[in-house]
Simulated assay, not measured.
Amino acid sequence: MYKIAVMGDYDSIYGFAAVGLDTYPLSDEKEAEKQLHQLVLSKYAVIYITEEWAARIPHAIDKYKDQILPAIIQIPGVSGNTGKGVENVKKFVETAVGSDILFSNNK
């Protein structure tokens, strides 16, 4: 069975434990990079990371962007939505589908 992890500041992720996801609160960039690498090695299929933390370790996330698993997905944290998560999902869908699904050519 595949596992799902959530990484980020404690206030943003603690609620995910209530629905059975593995949560990993972060406190510094070096720890975040090590934790991400460990989760990849531990065969997590999906790793959610808050947008704030993803912005702090983009080079670590980029190492895994061409892999099928894990899917590393940015989510908003308690500080709000920056739009980066939606932007990244849109890019993945464009790559998979071949076009921008949010662009309507109907006038």
Score class of each variant (00 low, 15 high):
45 A>K: 12
46 V>P: 01
46 V>I: 15
46 V>W: 02
48 Y>Q: 12
49 I>K: 10
49 I>N: 09
50 T>I: 09
50 T>W: 08
50 T>Y: 09
51 E>I: 01
52 E>S: 07
52 E>K: 14
52 E>L: 12
52 E>H: 11
53 W>G: 09
53 W>Q: 11
53 W>Y: 09
54 A>Y: 08
54 A>E: 12
55 A>N: 15
55 A>Q: 15
56 R>N: 12
56 R>Q: 15
56 R>T: 03
57 I>D: 02
57 I>H: 06
58 P>V: 07
58 P>N: 09
59 H>T: 13
59 H>Y: 03
60 A>M: 05
60 A>I: 08
61 I>W: 03
61 I>T: 03
61 I>Q: 01
62 D>V: 02
62 D>E: 15
62 D>H: 12
63 K>R: 15
63 K>T: 12
64 Y>G: 02
65 K>E: 14
65 K>I: 13
66 D>G: 11
66 D>Y: 06
66 D>L: 11
69 L>C: 05
69 L>G: 00
70 P>T: 03
70 P>M: 07
71 A>G: 11
71 A>N: 12
71 A>C: 12
73 I>H: 03
74 Q>R: 13
75 I>Y: 10
78 V>K: 14
78 V>H: 07
79 S>N: 13
80 G>K: 10
80 G>S: 06
81 N>C: 07
83 G>T: 10
84 K>W: 00
84 K>R: 14
84 K>H: 11
86 V>Q: 13
